[in-house]
Amino acid sequence: MRIRAADDDRDWPQIFPFFSRIVEDGETYAYPDGMTADTARSLWMEPPPGQTVVAVRGDQVVGSAKMGPNRPGRGAHVATASFMVDAAHQGTGVGRALGSYAVEWARAAGYHGMQFNAVVETNSVAVRLWLSLGFEILATVPEAFDHPRFGLVGLHVMYQKF
């Protein structure tokens, strides 16, 4: 598996199907249901100074991440990132590879840390992964996410200082 910068024309057609399924499942992202490919693309394909990357096995895109400044202006010294892995490739190290890449990218770009604003507390796989990569849970906003199976659950704010 390799991670490389995403090419909008070549990679988006492979990202959008798993992006759509993950959003429609409603368990990990607060994006609206029923987005068109163009609307989703504008949310996922990160412009500079950020970037979007893909994890590729052979010619197949198996996951993607976007990263960049968490906030503009006076908050731009802290990075953020979002991750999606095709369900057919979950549990195979794609998320860890993308997470490690994002952390190293942010360090190399001179960010002072990385903040995840909204990690759904019931997403135990992601929470364990981020903790193992050096993040800590700073706070949990109670009942901030409407989960389709569990109802109102918390969103963790997670952070790693560089």
Rank of each mutant, 00 (worst) to 15 (best):
V157R: 06
T80P: 01
I3A: 04
D86V: 12
G68R: 02
A97P: 05
P48W: 03
Q115K: 15
Y29W: 11
D38S: 14
A118G: 12
R149G: 00
Q115W: 03
T52A: 05
I15R: 02
Q90M: 12
W44Y: 06
D38I: 07
E104T: 09
H77K: 11
M158P: 05
W105G: 03
D9R: 15
M1G: 13
D8A: 15
R71Q: 11
I3E: 01
R107S: 02
D9C: 11
A55N: 03
F16V: 03
A76I: 04
G73L: 13
T52V: 08
M1H: 11
Q115T: 13
D9S: 14
V153G: 03
V85A: 06
V127L: 03
E46T: 15
D146V: 12
T140V: 11
P32M: 03
Q90W: 04
M1V: 04
H156E: 03
P142C: 07
E27P: 00
A126W: 01
F83Y: 15
F18L: 07
A76W: 02
F135W: 08
Q60P: 00
A88N: 14
D8M: 03
D11M: 05
D9M: 08
T39K: 12
T122Q: 08
V62R: 01
E104H: 07
A40S: 04
F135V: 09
E24S: 10
V54Q: 02
E136G: 15
R41C: 07
G93M: 05
T92H: 13
Y31E: 12
V94T: 08
V141W: 04
A30W: 06
A5T: 13
G34I: 06
L152G: 00
G73Q: 10
K161Y: 04
A81Q: 08
E121T: 14
A88R: 14
P48T: 11
G95R: 04
M67G: 10
T28H: 00
F19Y: 13
A40Y: 02
R71V: 06
A79I: 12
S82T: 15
E143R: 15
A30Q: 10
T80S: 15
E143L: 10
M67I: 10
V94M: 00
D86E: 07
K66F: 14
G151Q: 07
T39V: 14
V61F: 03
L152R: 15
G50D: 04
G58F: 04
L131Y: 00
A30C: 02
G95E: 02
R41T: 06
A6P: 02
P17K: 11
T92Y: 02
M45F: 10
V56P: 01
F150P: 00
P72F: 08
F116Q: 08
P49L: 10
T39D: 11
T140F: 03
K66N: 14
R21A: 12
H156L: 07
R71N: 08
R74K: 13
Q60R: 15
T28R: 02
F116H: 05
